[in-house]
Design a protein around this nucleic acid. Structure first.
Lengths: 206, 206
DNA sequence: TGTACATCAGTGAACGCGCGTTCACTGATGTAC
DNA sequence: TGTACATCAGTGAACGCGCGTTCACTGATGTAC
């Protein structure tokens, strides 16, 4: 008669690490980065405030896990964008647009990703070998047919990355609303700005 | 005999608003944005925690004042940079470098400026009529001899602004250290990245 | 010039809050024999 | 198959902290007469 009902949770959770990271992302989506406390995450996951300490050394380690998921998700979005484009110019613009749209669609997650990076004064260490940063570098390399020096390739990647990040941080500012409307929507606006960046102009000439 | 000694402060401060904003900037410089609480500012100014409320409605209003000073200071730096350059291309690059250097030299202040902007989803309202944003727009307008349509001018300004902001946020990331060294210093690195942005390439062609 | 009084700009104690983290604990699980 | 026991993964109460803000207050200032 007193068998565990469907709604009564077992004492042990099963996969609390996973559940905590998910809870954190839920809080980010609904309440923003300022609300992301360890206690709030535990609460959201339906667990005591001390429970997370069996899975993460401290708050920082949980944030790190959340940020990591963010970078993986961004990488995925960029991969999709690359595979959809037909020619190499489209691929470049599409990549930029996809980057900014990711930030627009996951603003709080995007914020956590860069807040962690700023704390460490470093993008995730392994991004030079895999992940979102490489998506950008490879796309540029592809577009230039591999004719560009390693240094120039690196510089162009940084330039593109910074431009994307700047746009990502400001895309929702009120000041841009009139232009967006004039140009026929947000994506058209993004494309127009990217064109004006004349991104990779130097590489195209070469 | 008991005349007020040089070190005994009068009961009334004289210009506490000013002193509070200065104290806030001092805290930003030495301890960073996370340490910037109203209580800390009062402490730094040598005044009780309640005193600031005679000058600012709440913490937000003080932050607003600090951010405003930041924008004014940035504007000043950009004006100086513009006046130093000899030709219009130098003027553009110099402006970009000056922008990023301002952020590098005042990282916490720069952060507060953009944090406030993000909270409001808006750059300071009056920047379309005066201030840093106009420095950029005017410099582009100058460089293109006023031949560019208002929409293109706006887009180019946004593009430049975003690129500068992206670079400003990442300039101190570890990943860039080798390149900086290879290129002979931070400023050379900045110039190289700006070149690769091919900023205003479209305008130059026109 | 002197005085009464309103106003201004401080004080310091207190409020309630949510936070990160620690602690002694206990229920559940899995393994050795 | 059953049992003793170590280990794991939770609980909930408590810690100390700094925060933003309010409150009744008081010292200083300036003004009207």
């Amino acid at each position: 008669m007193t068998q565990p009902a469907a709604d009564s949770r077992p004492y042990h959770h099963g996969d609390l690490s996973r559940a905590l990271v998910d809870a954190a992302r839920r809080i980010l989506e609904t309440e923003g980065p300022a609300a992301l406390s360890l206690r709030a995450v535990a609460r959201e996951a339906g667990v005591s405030p001390a429970a997370p300490y069996h899975h993460f050394k401290d708050k920082g380690e949980l944030l790190e896990a959340v940020a990591h998921e963010g970078w993986v998700a961004l990488d995925k979005r960029l991969t999709e964008a690359r595979s959809k484009a037909t020619d190499s110019k489209d691929r470049m613009t599409g990549l930029g647009v996809a980057y900014v749209c990711f930030a627009r669609d996951n603003p709080a997650l995007y914020r956590v990703m860069y807040d962690r990076s700023r704390d460490k004064d470093s993008l995730p260490e392994q991004m030079k070998e895999e992940g979102a940063y490489c998506q950008v570098r490879d796309t540029i390399d592809e577009r230039t047919g591999g004719t560009v020096s390693p240094i120039d390739l690196e510089l162009a990647t940084i330039a593109a990355w910074c431009a994307g990040h700047g746009l990502a941080e400001m895309i929702s500012f009120k000041q841009f609303a009139p232009l967006k409307e004039m140009l026929g929507g947000e994506e058209a606006f993004l494309r127009a700005v990217f064109e004006h960046l004349g991104m990779f102009a130097k590489l195209d000439q070469a």
